[in-house]
C-alpha cells in the first residue's frame, strides 16, 4: 500500500511542466562479478531525465563498476559477468532490441583520466564520435562550435582547433572529452570521477558545465568529493562494501536528504567525513 503511494508521488514528481530532455536509465537488481568475486549486489537506482544523479561511497565499493555496467563497458573485462538489467527508456540494454554500438552512442561516458585522442587535432577529437560511428558530418564547423560551447571550452580553443589535443591542459582535455561525448548527442552522460585528476579551477569549470547540461541530458556522476556531490547532484546514492562482501546501495534519495538527515548512521558518518 505504502509502495503504491510512493510510486504515485514519484510519477507526479516526474511530470513537470516542461519535459526535460534525456533518457531515463533504470538499474534493476544489478549484481556484478569479476571471475568468482562478487563486487556488486542487487542495486536498484533510477536515473531520471533532467536530474543529476551522484554515486558516492568509499573506494572499492562498486560505484565505477555500476557506472560501467550502465553503458556496457563492464563486459570489456573478459572475466566480468553481471545479473539484473538496465533499462534505457524501458528497453533492456543487455537485451537484443538495441545494438551495442547504439547503446553506447546514446549513453556517453567521460572517464576519470582525460583521454583525448592524441593523434587527432582538437576539432577532430570533437568529431571523433561521428567518424567512429560512421556517420556523415553535414556541418562540421557548426557541430564543433556547438559541442565545445556546451562543454564550456569554445572560447579557450576557438583559434587553435587545428592544434593537437595533447597540448591542452588537463582540465581543458577533460572538457574536450565532454565535448567529444556531447557531439554524438547522447541521451545520458556517465561521468566517472571526472574531476579527480584536475585542479580546483578546472573542477569548478566542469561543475558549471554539468549544471548547464543538466536540463539537456541525464547525468550520472561518480565522485569522491562530498562537496561536489552536494553542489551538482539532486539525487544521490551511497554505496558501501563491507570487508569481503559485495558493494550495496546503503541509502539513496534526494541529495539534500542524504546530506541533511540520512536515516542510516553509516551514511551520516560517511557524508560528514568520519570514515572513508
Amino acid at each position: 500500500m505504502t509502495e503504491t503511494t510512493a510510486e504515485v508521488t514519484a510519477v507526479e514528481e516526474f511530470a513537470p511542466v516542461v519535459e526535460p530532455a534525456g533518457g531515463t536509465l533504470r538499474g534493476v537488481g544489478v549484481s556484478a562479478w569479476f571471475g568468482a568475486r562478487k563486487v556488486l549486489e542487487n542495486v536498484d537506482i533510477d536515473m531520471r531525465a533532467g536530474v543529476v544523479t551522484a554515486l558516492i561511497g568509499p573506494s572499492g565499493c562498486g560505484k565505477s563498476t555500476f557506472l560501467r555496467i550502465l553503458n556496457r563497458m563492464h563486459e570489456l573485462v573478459p572475466i566480468a559477468t553481471l545479473a539484473g538489467s538496465v533499462l534505457l527508456d524501458g528497453d533492456d540494454i543487455y537485451g537484443t532490441a538495441l545494438p551495442i554500438t547504439e547503446i553506447r552512442r546514446r549513453i556517453g561516458m567521460v572517464f576519470q583520466k582525460p583521454n583525448p585522442f592524441p593523434a587527432m587535432t582538437i576539432g577532430d577529437n570533437v568529431l571523433a564520435g561521428l567518424k567512429l560511428t560512421g556517420r556523415k558530418v553535414p556541418n562540421r564547423e557548426q557541430l564543433i562550435e556547438e559541442s565545445l560551447r556546451r562543454a564550456g571550452l569554445w572560447n579557450e580553443v576557438r583559434n587553435r582547433l587545428g592544434a593537437p589535443a595533447g597540448g591542452l591542459s588537463g582540465g581543458q582535455q577533460q572538457r574536450l572529452c565532454i565535448a567529444r561525448s556531447l557531439a554524438v548527442r547522447p541521451d545520458v552522460l556517465l561521468m566517472d570521477e571526472p574531476c579527480s585528476a584536475l585542479d580546483p579551477t578546472s573542477t569548478r569549470r566542469i561543475e558549471e558545465t554539468i549544471l548547464e547540461l543538466k536540463d539537456q541530458l541525464t547525468i550520472v556522476i561518480v565522485t569522491h568529493n562530498m562537496q561536489q556531490a552536494q553542489r551538482v547532484s539532486q539525487h544521490c546514492a551511497f554505496f558501501l562494501a563491507a570487508e569481503d562482501e559485495p558493494g550495496r546501495v546503503v541509502e539513496q534519495g534526494d541529495t539534500d536528504f542524504i546530506f541533511g538527515s540520512p536515516k542510516d548512521p553509516r551514511t551520516a558518518d560517511y557524508v560528514n567525513g568520519r570514515f572513508g
Binding site: 547503446i103 552512442r105 561516458m109 583521454n115 592524441p118 564520435g129 567512429l132 560511428t133 554524438v184
Partner: peptide, 16 residues
Amino acid sequence: SLREAALALGSPYWRS
C-alpha cells in the same frame, strides 16, 4: 583508455 573512449562513443571495434 583510448580504446575505451572510442568504444564509449558507440564505435564498432574495427573502427576504433
